[in-house]
C-alpha cells in the first residue's frame, strides 16, 4: 500500500470536515503542505453514505462510496485519502463489497449507469487514511526532519475509535508484518506523535466505543462512556487525547462539557486532532491548525508546556 512522497492523492474530506471538523480539514491541509505532500480534492464528491443511507439500504451506501472512488479514478488517482474514520470505513467497505459481493456489483453498475458516470471497478483505486498517508509517505523520520519545537513534555493518549480497524476483513493491508498497522493495537498515531517528540502513554481504551452513535438516542450513556474515556486518559497521565475521527472528537469535546454540567464531573485533559498536534510540532501556529475552532481551549496547556 505504500505511498511515495511525490504521489498526489485524491482528497476526500467528507461532510464532517466541512462542518463540525473544520479544524481537522484545516490542519490536515496545513501539515500536508508543510511536509511537501500533494493532494487534490475529488471533484463534485458526495456523502459516503455513513449513517442515514446505511439504515435504509446498505447497497445504496456502497454505491455512494463507489461513486467517489470512480470520480477519483477518472481524475487519474490511484489513492483516495480520507481523514474521517467513518468515510474511511465506508470507502473501504465499498472496495471490499464490490470485490466480493456480486449483488453489490450489480446494483452499483445499474445505479452508475443511471447516474451517467463510469462504474467503479475494484482494485483501481485504494482508500487510505490520513494516518497511512503520512506514515507511508514521510514516516517517522520525515516528521523528525520537519519538527521545530516538537512536543517535548506532552503526554498523549492516542484514541483511534472503533471504525479505524473494524470490521477487520475490509482492511487487508493491516496486520501484514512489522511495519503495517495493527488491528488489535493500532500504533500509527503513537509512532508519528512520538516522532514529533511527544510521549504516548499506554491507553487501554484506544479502540473502545466513544458512544457517538448513542448521542441522540441515549445521551447519558454517551456522556458516561466519554467521561470514562477522559478519566482513563487522565489516570494514564495524559495531558491530551489525540483523535483521528470527527465523530469521536466532537463527542469527546461535547460530552466533556456535558459531564461537568449534568454529572458534576470535571476533567482537564484536552482533545486535539493528531494533525493539529503534528502541525504544532512542526512550528505551525495554533490558528493555522485550527486550535481556536475546537470546543475546548487547549491554548493554555500548550503555552504552559512551552509548545507555542
Amino acid at each position: 500500500m505504500s505511498s511515495s512522497k511525490d504521489e498526489t492523492v485524491a482528497y476526500y474530506p467528507g461532510c464532517a470536515l466541512e462542518g463540525t471538523a473544520q479544524s481537522y480539514d484545516r490542519s490536515t491541509k496545513a501539515i500536508g503542505k508543510a511536509l511537501g505532500l500533494k493532494m487534490k480534492e475529488i471533484d463534485n464528491w458526495n456523502c459516503c453514505g455513513a449513517m442515514e443511507v446505511k439504515n435504509i439500504d446498505p447497497k445504496l451506501q456502497t454505491y455512494l462510496s463507489a461513486r467517489n472512488l470512480s470520480i477519483a479514478e477518472d481524475m487519474g488517482f490511484k489513492k483516495v485519502m480520507a481523514p474521517c474514520n467513518g468515510c474511511y470505513h465506508n470507502l473501504k467497505k465499498a472496495e471490499f463489497d464490490l470485490a466480493n459481493d456480486p449483488k453489490s456489483v450489480e446494483v452499483n453498475a445499474r445505479l452508475s449507469k443511471k447516474a451517467g458516470h463510469k462504474t467503479y471497478e475494484p482494485g483501481k483505486v485504494e482508500t487510505i487514511h490520513a494516518l497511512d498517508w503520512i506514515k507511508d509517505s514521510v514516516g517517522e523520520q520525515g516528521i523528525k526532519d520537519k519538527v521545530k519545537g516538537g512536543l517535548k513534555g506532552l503526554k498523549i493518549a492516542n484514541y483511534y475509535g472503533c471504525m479505524y480497524t473494524r470490521p477487520r476483513h475490509i482492511f487487508p493491508e493491516k496486520d501484514q508484518g512489522e511495519n503495517s498497522e495493527s488491528i488489535d493495537k493500532p500504533h500509527y498515531m503513537d509512532d508519528l506523535l512520538d516522532a514529533a517528540g511527544a510521549e504516548s502513554v499506554e491507553y487501554p481504551l484506544k479502540t473502545s466505543c466513544c458512544g457517538g452513535a448513542h448521542t441522540l438516542s441515549d445521551s447519558d450513556t454517551s456522556t458516561k462512556l466519554v467521561l470514562n474515556l477522559l478519566q482513563a486518559a487522565e489516570a494514564c497521565g495524559a495531558d491530551v487525547i489525540a483523535t483521528e475521527c470527527p465523530t469521536c472528537h466532537t463527542g469527546l469535546e461535547m460530552h466533556q462539557i456535558r459531564a461537568e454540567k449534568v454529572f458534576g464531573k470535571k476533567t482537564n485533559v484536552k482533545i486535539l486532532y493528531f494533525t493539529q498536534l503534528l502541525g504544532i510540532a512542526m512550528g505551525l501556529s495554533p490558528r493555522k491548525v485550527g486550535v481556536h475552532e475546537n470546543f475546548g481551549d487547549a491554548l493554555p496547556l500548550l503555552k504552559d508546556k512551552g509548545l507555542v
Binding site: 446505511k54 439504515n55 435504509i56 439500504d57 446498505p58 467513518g86 470505513h89 472503533c162 471504525m163 473494524r166 470490521p167 481504551l205 473502545s208 466505543c209 458512544g211 457517538g212 452513535a213 448513542h214 438516542s217 441515549d218 450513556t221 454517551s222 458516561k224 462512556l225 470514562n228 474515556l229 482513563a232 465523530t247
Partner: peptide
C-alpha cells in the same frame, strides 16, 4: 466501559441497532 457499552446497546435495542458499525 464494557458495562456502559453493552447496557447502551440493550437500551436502544427496541429501536434497532445504532452502533457506528451497524446494520439496517
Amino acid at each position: 466501559h464494557l458495562a456502559l457499552f453493552v447496557s447502551g446497546k440493550l437500551e436502544v435495542s427496541g429501536l434497532g441497532e445504532f452502533c457506528c458499525a451497524s446494520k439496517s
